[in-house]
Design a protein around this nucleic acid. Structure first.
Length: 992
RNA sequence: GGGCCCAUAGCUUAGGCUGGCUGGAGCACCCGGCUGAUAACCGGGAGGUCGUCGGUUCAAAUCCGACUGGGCCCA
């Protein structure tokens, strides 16, 4: 027997395993080789969602990246080629600008202009990839394998050229148009935002809640006024109309000053809970076209202004049933204003500060005007009621400044024109969770508003539209086209950003006049939505991009339904008339351990890197993949540890057992599927096959959880049943052939399990696979991540599975009985009697043998129910089912002979553990001196050769009574008897 | 105001689409074992009106409706 076997592998911690595996991967270049593998395999289309390049990763990114990586690893093992593996960075936009502004203490666009846009953009460019290394480090640590050396950058010239190409295509199809609309607008950033950006920034806030009296004008209006409710008093100077609902019931009541006040009947109870004197009743239609005196005179007269109009949008649940309309400050207001042809009045400048058009508040920021305007109204007796209201209000998602809705010139992607196609394409997508398709996301699409694309900003993809004084708009779709319009080649290393792009002298292709670029950049979300084609510089460079082919898979956080998932779908629909992806997996928000939102400001956020330092990669990966990751998820590190220990730790442990044992036996894994005969082996392979089936199906369905749970169940079965019941076979000397078969089966099962686990827990799986290799952790350049996905084993045997389940159920009854009679498992009992039918045929006699071994009973008997009465109740303890029927019985006491056998087993176990304690290797031989009390002495003496054999003792001396000189002896008490042992390692025998 | 999701033992949850046999599991707890898987491990036990009310059905945790509470999204 060779003695140079590696030292018995002690089960290392998962962290230690990861360190070792990472070193191995680094040394052998496994990740790069895995990414480059399968150059001819069928394509699996994927695009990495580009994170904002100057934002730090958070724990939620670990989850999303785990979901992405699981699928990519699986596909590679299936022989597919991933297109593409490029990492990506979203480089443009407000977040980047904001960082630079902060650094310089800029407060507005004026500061940027003074600093110089070119310098500003240069700083943005430099700042953009500052945290990229943090992302890379985190991703590689997590095991998320992508090509980080060649990422796509949304700010690169080729990328921008692709984006321009797409914009020109949209423009040519009438899907890119300029318009004047009310949009959410950030006064600090001085730019409009898109509706999906607004969605990111709702916060609770307190606003005024006021009811203002609008006096009706003219002869018939005398002595009457309307009650109008608003939470934005600052919009009142821009009021041009009041809307009423045509069918709603209104009442005129006697007000405090005796005049008539009109409001919706439904609002009466809220305003006058004690009732009021009703002077008149109207429907909305009765009130149409009545004129009123505007609360402020600054907008001036105009056709159709200051009268009541009818609109269905008016409600009476809140307010008074009259809605004040300021067409410059609300999408609904704008619609009504346009319909009535009353024009608009916008007294705010770019920073939402009042101009001299409203003298009382000139120079005041919009919100700051509220109290002044209210005081003014009060002094004129027009303020009916004033209070405040807590409600959610939109704030800028990046700078947290309160937004305003205001009319502004902007370029739009006309998504409403294609909403039918968006819905149709979305209907083909496999969403995880499935309800998103027709639920939240589907609804969102059906109501899709036009996408406000242009930003009045600096660091972004410039909108490539040039307009000449004749009003001809030219959308440029490539650098070559741009060069053509300037009549000269573009400068070397042309950078298409502002300001360089604005310096070019462009002639209008229609009339030849000098054209100016529309001074906008575009929404950064458009850039990222273009990633599936722009990362390839489509259509300018040949690539694997196929305009007709959607991505096979994307996965990100649920918030991306309003972000990336949406913009990708809009672009794929508008450009290629197809869905953007066929499978879309979302994960829920990650909460802290108390179930609250993780917030950086409250110091609650867990740094992803520190989490990886504490837990390693496989533990959070496994933790994420075994729970419902689509729901809001509580980050519980202890639970993660437990989950990983239970399955990954157990698998490592079983692998260690196998290694020690195989080394001791000089057996190597055969590598080929075994053809087992033993029932346990056949059962294990059947379970393995079923597990393989489940994991495969689950990954095919893009929902890895079911597979993770199947693996967990398999590892439980492997450890707590197969291995425990097979131990005698691994130790036994009597049947070497069976021992070899058990070894083959176990090694094959472990090797297969390692492959099934590889997508989930890449480090642990690699460890298991490597430990199974001939010489221990391999120096060979192999990796489980370069292996093929296991095919069907043809080992499925449902009858056997059911039979084994029955046996295990029986064993549980037996264990409960043993507990009841109070005889521990090491002491054999004589009889275990099962009431009912025969053993399951799929196991036959093997069933009772397994039961006997597991319960440590000498005989398993089966008797028909009718015969139960004949059994000796004094000797046998009984177990009954819920209905009181006796189902099994067991001996109450061991016989003296069996008791002695139990003693020997106890002694043996202690002596084995003494070997371990002394740090002896598996095959070290020993000299052993034992001393024991009378009873124990007799028991041991009777089986002395067997004992010596099992303990690898070349010399075994046994003495009656305590040792003469107890020094060097270890002592135990076993059921009141004493045992002493002294053990010495023999010198290693010479190598043969 | 509208839409979607969720509610199962003290805690975390599986199952629910496709109704049916004692509703599984982990943690914590109790009993026992183990102490070279150790912020573990193994066995056993106790613990559940499956949010509430109503309906469909021979049969409901599961299907339908209403309600209550929570989460997310929109307005």
């Amino acid at each position: 027997m060779p003695t140079e076997e590696p030292p018995p592998a002690t089960a290392a911690s998962l962290l230690e395993i990861e360190r070792r595996v990472r070193e191995y991967w680094d040394a052998t270049g496994v990740p790069g080789r895995a990414l480059a593998a399968r150059p001819d395999g069928p394509i699996f289309r994927f695009t990495e969602g580009p994170p904002t390049a100057n934002g730090m990763p958070h724990v939620g990114h670990l989850l999303a990246r785990t979901l992405k990586d699981v699928q990519l690893r699986y596909r590679r093992m299936r022989g597919q080629r991933i297109v593409s593996t490029m990492a990506g960075w979203d480089c443009h936009g407000l977040p980047v600008e904001l960082e630079v502004e902060k650094r310089h203490g800029f407060r507005s666009k004026k500061d940027i202009e003074a600093f110089g846009v070119e310098r500003f953009n240069e700083e943005c460019r430099r700042g953009t990839l500052e945290v990229a290394s943090v992302w890379e480090g985190m991703s590689e640590r997590l095991g998320y394998w992508l090509d980080y050396r060649h990422p796509y950058l949304t700010m690169s010239a080729p990328y921008i050229e692709s984006v321009w190409w797409s914009l020109k295509t949209l423009h040519g199809r009438g899907l890119l148009e300029k318009g004047f609309r009310c949009l959410p607008y950030c006064p600090r950033c001085e730019t409009p935002l898109s509706s999906h950006e607004v969605a990111l920034g709702y916060q609770e806030t307190t606003d005024p809640s006021v009811t203002v009296r609008f006096r009706l004008a003219g002869a018939e209006g005398r002595g009457r006024s309307l009650l109008v409710w608003t939470t934005t008093p600052w919009t009142l100077p821009a009021n041009l109309l009041v809307a009423a609902h045509p069918g709603l019931a209104y009442v005129g009541i006697r007000g405090a000053d005796g005049t008539e006040e009109v409001l919706a009947e439904a609002a009466l109870r809220r305003y006058h809970p004690d009732g009021a004197e009703v002077l008149a009743r109207y429907t909305g239609s009765d009130l149409a076209d009545l004129g009123y005196d505007p609360p402020f005179p600054f907008a001036g007269p105009g056709p159709g202004r200051y009268r009541i109009v009818l609109d269905e949008m008016v409600e009476a649940e809140e307010g008074t049933g009259f809605v004040h309309i300021a067409p410059s400050f609300g999408p609904e207001d704008q619609r009504v204003g346009e319909r009535e042809g009353v024009g608009a009045f916008d007294p705010l400048d770019g920073r939402a500060v009042f101009t001299s058009a409203v003298p009382p508040v000139a120079g005041k920021a919009f919100k700051a005007a509220d109290p002044i305007l209210l005081a003014d109204l009060e002094s004129r007796g027009l303020l009916e009621r004033a209070g405040s209201l807590r409600h959610s209000y939109p704030f800028c998602w990046r700078c947290s400044h309160a937004l305003v809705y205001r009319g502004i010139d902007s370029w739009f992607v006309r998504t409403r024109k294609i909403s039918e196609a968006l819905v149709r394409h979305n209907a083909t997508v496999t969403w995880v969770p499935a309800h998103l398709r027709d639920g939240r996301f589907g609804n969102f699409l059906a109501e899709a508003k036009d996408w406000a694309l242009s930003r009045n900003r600096y660091w972004g993809t410039p909108l490539p539209i040039w307009v000449c004084p004749g009003g001809h708009a030219t959308c440029v779709g490539s650098f070559a086209e741009l060069a053509g319009l300037t009549g000269a080649p573009l400068p070397d290393a042309f950078d298409p950003h502002r300001v360089a792009v604005d310096r070019l002298a462009v002639r209008c292709p229609t009339c030849g006049a000098a054209a100016k670029r529309e001074p906008y950049t575009i929404d950064g979300w458009y850039d990222s939505g273009a990633a599936p084609f722009a990362q390839f510089h489509h259509p300018f460079a040949p690539s694997d991009f196929d305009p007709a082919a959607p991505l096979d898979y994307v996965a990100e956080g649920l918030d991306q339904t309003r972000g990336w998932f949406y913009t990708m779908l809009v672009l794929s629909t508008a450009l290629f008339d197809r869905p953007a992806y066929t499978a879309c997996v979302t994960n829920g928000l990650i909460l802290d351990e108390t179930g609250a939102k993780m917030s950086k400001s409250r110091g609650r956020a867990v740094e992803p890197m520190s989490l990886l330092d504490r837990l390693g990669a496989d533990t959070p990966r496994w933790g994420f993949l075994t729970v419902d990751y689509t729901a809001p998820l509580r980050l519980d590190e202890t639970a993660m540890r437990q989950a990983a220990n239970r399955t990954l730790g157990t698998l490592v442990h079983v692998t260690t057992f196998y290694r020690q044992n195989a080394a001791a036996d000089g057996l190597a894994p055969s590598g080929r599927p075994p053809t087992p005969t033993a029932a346990l082996d056949r059962w294990l392979l059947s379970r393995l096959d079923a597990t393989r089936e489940l994991v495969t199906g689950s990954l095919d369905a893009f929902d890895p959880r079911e597979g993770a749970l199947a693996l967990r169940a398999f590892v439980d079965d492997l450890s707590t049943w197969y291995l425990r019941r097979s131990r005698p076979r691994f130790w036994g000397e009597e049947d070497p052939e069976d021992r070899r078969r058990a070894n083959d089966t176990l090694s094959f099962a472990l090797a297969t399990a390692a492959r099934l686990l590889a997508p989930y827990a890449p480090y642990t799986a690699e460890h298991v696979a490597q430990e199974l290799a001939a010489g221990g952790f391999a120096t060979a350049e192999s990796s489980v991540h370069l292996a093929d996905w296991p095919g069907s084993l043809g080992a499925s045997d449902p009858a056997l599975d059911a039979a084994m389940a029955e046996v295990r159920g029986t064993v549980e009854v037996g264990r409960a009985l043993r507990q009841k009679v109070g005889v521990r498992s090491r002491v054999p009992l004589l009889r275990f009697v099962l009431v009912g039918g025969p053993a399951p045929p799929a196991l036959g006699a093997e069933a009772d043998r397994l039961i006997a071994e597991e319960l440590n009973v000498r005989a398993v008997e089966r008797v028909p129910e009718a015969a139960v009465g004949e059994l000796d109740v004094a000797e046998l303890e009984r177990a009954v089912d819920a209905s009181g029927t006796v189902i099994a019985l067991i001996s109450r006491r061991p016989t003296p002979e069996l008791e002695r056998e139990g003693l020997v087993r106890e002694a043996l176990r202690r002596l084995q553990s003494l070997r371990k304690e002394r740090g002896l290797a598996f095959l070290d031989r020993i000299d052993l001196d034992l001393a024991a009390d009378e009873e124990l002495f007799a028991a041991i003496d009777a089986v002395r050769p067997r004992l010596a054999d099992e303990l690898l003792a070349d010399r075994l001396d046994l003495r009656r009574g305590p040792p003469a000189d107890p020094s060097g002896y270890r002592a135990w008490e076993i059921d009141g008897r004493h045992l002493y042992a002294r053990l010495e390692r023999r010198a290693a025998p010479d190598a043969r």
